[in-house]
Design a protein around this nucleic acid. Structure first.
Lengths: 106, 106
DNA sequence: AATTTGCGCAACCAAAAAGTTGCATGTATA
DNA sequence: TATACATGCAACTTTTTGGTTGCGCAAATT
């Protein structure tokens, strides 16, 4: 079973769950109420998110509150970073081109 | 067929292809040589990447050069941004806590 | 002109994932 | 203690996906 963060965020429902619990911990039932799915389906998504450590749980009586382990999201940011470098470089190059054009105009 | 950028980057081979062609356009055969797959498999990945506009192609004779449409990568960055805001806020809050502790120490 | 090469596309197959159903378990509540 | 929730988990079904094979087409090469 492939379980990495990129695979985890591939599913739109999981992305929505992530956003939903980013600020406040929620129970599976409460989460399911926000979507067009069953509790079980949400439960499965939560298991996947837990498996790749994107989510942590906290039991409170018979309820289990799930919340986002936001640090983990930085892994995606880290991967994007290599491309950020590229697009920033390109932007600067464009900047240089514009500056050169301006100079020539003078 | 669901075709969005998050689904596109879910596959590790596709992520590798993206990184590979980020700087230089490459042909399917050249890309396949870098991995442990066939040209056809790469071709299929390229089709998926093309469908969600992550990749552009340029024909040159009988060869087709594929390169990354890096602007599209910003969409992921944009999604991550909501979480970046959260973790930066938390970091600042921690900063405040540390500052307060320091003050009390004095 | 014949052959080789680079490629896309469609059909197929196996594996994985998403969702559903039916439990079992533990915690509240009457 | 009996009942009603809240939940996880395992089995099963349906879809989706990644890969392979076998074309066909067009551009290069001979």
């Amino acid at each position: 079973m492939r379980r990495d963060i990129f695979q985890a965020i591939a599913d739109p429902t999981r992305r929505a769950i992530i956003t939903l619990i980013a600020l406040h911990a929620m129970t599976p039932n409460a989460i399911a109420d926000n979507f067009n799915t069953t509790r079980q389906a949400v439960s499965k998504h939560l298991r996947i998110l837990t498996e790749c450590e994107l989510v942590k749980q906290e039991q409170q009586g018979r309820e289990i509150y799930y919340s986002l382990q936001i640090e983990k999201m930085k892994e995606i940011d880290k991967w994007i970073d290599q491309f950020r470098k590229i697009w920033e470089t390109r932007f600067n190059q464009l900047d240089n081109v514009l500056a050169t054009l301006k100079k020539q105009k003078k």
